[in-house]
């Protein structure tokens, strides 16, 4: 029987092509999330994470491929699937015509939870989320964090087997974020399988037992956070922030030659297995005129002195130097050559 599978979520060669779109939103994605796992989909906006969740939660019909929840084919049996899952979306979709507690009890009623059980559950979850004293209110005076907590309470009302969290801590204040992280781990300890999407590296690292890194509709790498970090050769990286002289006023091409001069010099350093030049965030004025270089190597620390020489030889001025064990962000940059956002 399908129910006996150990996999909570199975995605097999999933493709989603939206009409009129030049490329596939999801382009041959496969992964498996085991029962009781917190599984992360990590990637920038437009990587195909939300579309993948859409297929798994029956609101997107795949162009090809297959998706299974607890052994149920999502496309063939949407009703059975919906009974097993719950979703906390990126943006609030709470029913604003209802009071907070009614949102929970009606949700449970839609799912056929008997009256007594749903009332007891709503009260317990409201208390647990710290919303008990606001339970009879409509949502007009609810903050973003409170709405988020209410959406999580709502998701738990029908005791789903798999919970989908789409960018759960996006737009949350740090305190709500910590609260949510603890809640996610708590729910997971109670046996809930959780699939979350995020473009927050720290979040993925903290919460997820396994992570699929996605970009342009494809899974680039899938493993535990620790194993993913081993993708980076050596295991350490050296990051330089350099202010380069500004002949940009003379001509744009001149600047490009100047920068690639330093890049070439860094790449030529013995012991540097890979060197990336990371474009500055154009929206951050503090980064203006600063170029980031990241050097990966067996022992990136030994690269420090020759790298500094290369910088000054190329007329650059060192602004910051940073030696780090790789984070998931480094893994993403290593895999794609660009920043997450």
């Amino acid at each position: 029987m399908a129910q006996l599978t150990d996999n909570a979520i199975e995605v097999i060669d999933l493709v989603k092509h939206y009409p009129k779109a030049p490329v596939n939103a999801v382009d041959g994605v496969s992964f498996t999330a085991r029962r009781g796992e917190i599984f992360g989909l990590l990637g920038p906006n437009g990587a195909g994470k939300t579309t993948t969740i859409g297929v798994l939660t029956t609101s997107v019909v795949p162009t090809s491929g297959k998706a299974l929840i607890m052994g149920h084919d999502v496309t063939a049996d949407p009703i059975g699937t919906k009974q097993l899952i719950a979703i906390v979306p990126q943006q609030s979709n709470l029913d604003r015509s209802l009071r907070a507690r009614d949102i929970l009890t009606f949700h449970a009623a839609y799912h056929g939870v008997p009256r007594r059980e749903r009332n007891a559950r709503a009260d317990a979850l409201l208390a647990e989320m710290g919303l008990a004293d606001r339970a009879k209110e409509k949502l007009t005076r609810y903050s973003g964090g409170m709405g988020q907590r209410l959406m999580i309470a709502r998701a738990l009302m029908h005791s789903p087997a798999v919970l989908f969290l789409d960018e759960p801590t996006n737009n949350l204040d740090p305190q709500s974020r910590l609260f949510l992280w603890e809640r996610i781990q708590q729910m997971n300890r109670e046996g809930l399988t959780i699939l979350l999407t995020t473009h927050d590296m720290l979040e993925a690292d903290q919460l997820c037992q396994r992570i699929a890194i996605m970009d342009h509709g494809k899974v680039l790498a899938l493993d535990t956070p620790d194993e993913l970090k081993k993708i980076i050769p050596g295991g350490t990286s050296l990051e330089l922030r350099v202010a380069l002289p500004q002949p940009a006023l003379v001509s744009a091409t001149g600047t490009a030659r100047e920068e690639s001069g330093l890049l070439t010099a860094l790449r030529a350093l013995p012991g540097a297995d890979k060197v990336d030049e990371i474009a500055a965030d154009p929206n951050d004025p503090a980064q203006e005129g600063i170029t980031r270089y990241r050097l990966y190597g067996q022992d990136a620390g030994t690269l420090t002195a020759p790298a500094l020489q290369a910088v000054s030889a190329n007329g650059g001025e060192l602004r910051d130097l940073h030696l780090a064990r790789p984070s998931l962000e480094d893994v993403f940059i290593y895999l794609t050559g660009r920043n997450l956002r």
């Binding site: 059975g80 056929g112 009260d123 710290g130 005791s159 789903p160 603890e182 708590q186």
Partner: peptide
């Protein structure tokens, strides 16, 4: 706030609930 109440417990009631036909659901 993080205390778990038995009612709000993970997946147990799901398993306990009788399977229902799709039409009934």
């Amino acid at each position: 706030m993080l205390d778990v109440t038995p009612q709000a417990n993970g997946t147990a009631p799901q398993a306990a609930r009788k399977p229902r036909s799709h039409a009934r659901m």
